[in-house]
Structures are given as C-alpha cells and as structure tokens.
Simulated scan of single mutants.
Amino acid sequence: MVRMQETTYVRVGDHDLTRKYGSPGAQTLKVLTTYIHHNHNSQTLDNDIALLKLGGKVELKEGVCLVCLPARDVSHAPGKRCTVTGYGYMGETGPIPLRVREAELPIVSDAECIRKVNAVTEKIFILPASSFCAGGEEGNDACQGDGGGPLVCQDDGFYELVGLVSWGFGCGRQDVPGVYAKVSAFIGWINQIISVNNL
C-alpha cells in the first residue's frame, strides 16, 4: 500500500526539546511517500512496518548517523541486551519527556514471551512470525509514544536495527515483555520497495 502524505515531516538528530533552537545537527525533511507493508494487520499488528521516502538527503553530522540493517531472518539469542530509545511516556500515565530516553532490555524467547503475555491477556496471544519480544523488567521498557521507534543491538562493534516498537501491555511491568517488529524478517520487502521504486 502506498499512501501519499502532504504534511508529514521527519525530524532527525533532535534529542533535546528543552533547547530553544533544537539540538545541533537536527534537520527536518518532508515525507513524500509512505510505503505500508502490504500484509499489515491493524488487529494483530502483524507486519507492523512502513518505509518513508524523504524529500531530500539527511546530512550526517553531530547527532545524526546511520544504523545497520540486520541480515535476513537473523534472530538474537534470548538474554542479549539491546537498547530502545524514544520520547514516549515515562510511565503508564505519563509524563512525556523533553529529552530522548533510553532503556536497555533483554531479548526474550518466543516461547517465554507467549507464556508471559498469555498470563496477562484475556484473548489468546499468538506471536506473529514477523515479531519478537524484549523486556519484562520492572520500570525498564518502551511506552506509549515510542511506537515505531528503534531497538538496536550491538554486534561486532556495530549497531543493528533489530526491532521496531510495536505494542505491549502497560509499560515496564515485571514479567510482561513488549512486542517488536522483527526487522530481519522484512529485509526482502525493504529491498523490493527500494528497487521497484528506484529509491
């Protein structure tokens, strides 16, 4: 699905909203086109991913850098600690922070995630193949407003974009992991969108 956007903008490199003129290196670019995954399911949040085509090039400088994409279908071992960042709520009811925050979370095995999420939900939870779980530590989590944000893992000195914040029950609850879109499951789709649209 391709969705045309008229007034959506992406701001990169801004990590401190308390500063009058923003962070050094911050840039604002218009979104020309949004490519939503053709099998996105808004009920189950399966295939919870989209690509944005920007109307210009991002300048790499202080506070603005690239993150690597993972290899296709790679998974990280349960227990590996990775970092999620965002401007989301600082607790289940807020407040919203004015500086980007980060949390270090463990990757959780699919079986453990299914068991733990089913312990707190009324509907039977089935983890989509395109998702994985991380977290489950008290007070250490992504939250409302972090959706779509990055979960990065360090591998051989490089940071890889392993997951995108998708959904969860509450925020930072003990033994309740959050659900992330598994970027490695979408490498073929990402390459196809880039090649078909000459991006």
Rank of each mutant, 00 (worst) to 15 (best):
D46Q: 04
D16K: 03
I96R: 14
L52A: 07
G94K: 06
H15L: 12
D48H: 06
K30Q: 13
A50R: 01
T85P: 04
A50E: 00
A71R: 13
I96K: 13
T85N: 04
L29E: 04
V108I: 05
V58L: 11
A103N: 12
E92F: 07
K80W: 03
H15F: 15
V67H: 05
L17E: 10
L32I: 02
S42H: 11
G79I: 05
Y21E: 11
K30P: 08
I36D: 00
K57Q: 13
P106C: 01
P78A: 05
K20H: 12
T18L: 13
D16N: 14
A103V: 13
K53C: 10
L105H: 07
C65K: 12
I36N: 01
T33C: 06
N41F: 07
S75V: 06
V100I: 08
V100K: 08
V108R: 01
G86H: 02
H76W: 15
K61R: 12
P24H: 09
R101D: 02
G22C: 09
N41W: 04
L54G: 02
Q27E: 11
L54E: 00
E59Q: 15
G56P: 08
A103I: 04
C68T: 00
H38S: 14
C82Y: 01
I96D: 07
R19M: 11
S23R: 02
L29W: 10
V74W: 12
N39I: 10
L60N: 06
K61F: 08
L60I: 15
E104Y: 10
P24D: 05
C82S: 01
L98C: 09
K30Y: 12
G79K: 07
D73C: 12
S75T: 09
I107A: 01
G94E: 07
V67L: 07
G56A: 08
V67E: 06
